[in-house]
């Protein structure tokens, strides 16, 4: 009997935690996107203020508190400083590395990668427009996820609890 109760508690807790995990994942995505948008806004200002890309990346890495985004910009700075690869390849490589480490969706990765098309463009206005476009797309995603988060928070949590209860009822 004790084993049955312990098993039931275990199933109940696992499914509830799974529900919470689904909700928290959305929250992580929102937070990550907010940090990326913030860093891109600084990059936009640095480009407006004609700071060379290498120094702009270094400045952002020094300002950033999130360790993954900090590392993303620091690696860009380091690679640009070594001058062994094109800026386009360096940006793409680092976006791929970042995507492996944080919760971010495929379309957001593609938006981030799109900056590589203009990263060494001669036209400052075009670069700024591209950054604005990326920021706008990410901000829309944040709004969408935020709305989703509110509505799904209860749903996933309750589903987790109910699913746990269902399993317990069926098997016991």
């Amino acid at each position: 009997m004790i084993l049955k109760i312990l098993g039931s508690i275990f199933i109940f807790l696992s499914s509830s935690l799974f529900g919470m995990y689904r909700v928290t994942k959305i929250k992580f995505k929102i937070n990550n996107l907010k940090k990326i948008v913030n860093a891109l806004e600084i990059l936009e200002s640095e480009i407006k203020f004609i700071t060379p890309l290498e120094h702009a990346a270094k400045n952002i890495s020094e300002l950033e508190t999130d360790q993954f985004i900090k590392k993303f910009f620091f690696n860009i700075y380091k690679s640009l400083n070594q001058k062994l690869n094109s800026a386009q390849n360096i940006w793409l490589e680092q976006v791929n590395l970042l995507a492996e480490k944080i919760y971010i969706e495929q379309d957001d990765i593609l938006h981030l990668k799109s900056f590589s098309h203009v990263i060494t463009n001669l036209d400052q206005d075009l670069q700024i427009s591209y950054l604005k476009k990326i920021i706008l797309a990410l901000e829309k995603k944040i709004i969408f996820l935020d709305e989703n988060y509110v509505s799904r928070k209860k749903l996933y949590f309750n589903l987790g609890i109910l699913f746990g209860l269902l399993i317990v009822i069926i098997f016991i």
């Binding site: 004609i50 060379p52 890309l53 290498e54 800026a87 463009n121 400052q124």
Partner: peptide, 19 residues
């Protein structure tokens, strides 16, 4: 293209006035 990237430190926008 590679020379231009190196000349501008990967930041042609920072050299627009000179270019």
């Amino acid at each position: 293209d590679q020379t231009l990237e190196l000349l501008t430190n990967y930041s042609p926008y920072a050299f627009q006035n000179q270019i």
